[in-house]
Amino acid sequence: MRRFLRDNGLSLAFGVLFLGSLVGQALAGVAEFNERRESEGLAAVSLGRYLTSSSFAVDTMENWQSEYLQFSLYVFATVWLVQRGSPESKEEDQVGPESDEDQLVGRHAGPGSPAWAAAGGSRTALFSRSLGLLMGGIFLLTWAAMSIAGWAAFNAEQLTSHQDPVSWLGYLGHADFWSRTFQNWQSEMLAVGSMAIFAVYLRQRGSPESKPVGAAHGDTGQTG
Rank of each mutant, 00 (worst) to 15 (best):
L69P: 00
P111N: 08
S66G: 15
G85N: 02
S179E: 11
T60P: 00
S53L: 03
I148Y: 15
S86W: 01
A13K: 01
P165F: 09
A109M: 02
R6C: 10
G173E: 03
T181F: 13
N8T: 10
G110D: 07
G48M: 06
A196K: 10
F154D: 05
W185N: 04
V105C: 09
Q186A: 13
A156H: 06
V30I: 06
A175Y: 12
L202K: 13
G41L: 03
A13Q: 04
G173V: 08
A199E: 03
F76K: 02
E188P: 01
W168S: 01
A215L: 10
M135T: 08
L190N: 04
P97H: 13
Q158G: 07
E209Y: 11
E40N: 07
G15E: 06
S128M: 12
A149Q: 02
D7H: 14
A118E: 05
Q25I: 10
D176W: 11
W168A: 07
A216Q: 11
E67C: 13
M195V: 08
S46C: 06
V16F: 14
Q65C: 07
V79D: 04
R205N: 10
G206D: 04
R107D: 14
G137T: 08
D93E: 10
R2F: 12
E101S: 07
L104T: 08
G137W: 01
T142M: 12
G106H: 04
V200C: 04
D100A: 14
T223G: 03
M135V: 09
V23E: 11
S130V: 14
L12G: 09
I138P: 00
S161D: 15
F4G: 05
V30T: 05
Q158P: 05
H174E: 09
A145W: 06
S39I: 00
G221L: 01
R129Q: 13
E92D: 06
A125K: 12
A153W: 05
G15K: 05
R84M: 06
W64H: 08
W178A: 06
T223P: 00
Y171G: 00
R180K: 12
E98I: 07
R49Y: 06
P87K: 01
V166Q: 08
T60Q: 07
G136S: 05
Q183G: 01
G150Y: 02
A43Q: 09
T52C: 10
E62C: 11
P212H: 03
G170F: 04
S147W: 04
G29I: 00
Q25H: 11
P111Y: 04
Y201M: 04
Y74F: 15
E209F: 13
P114F: 10
L81D: 05
A175R: 14
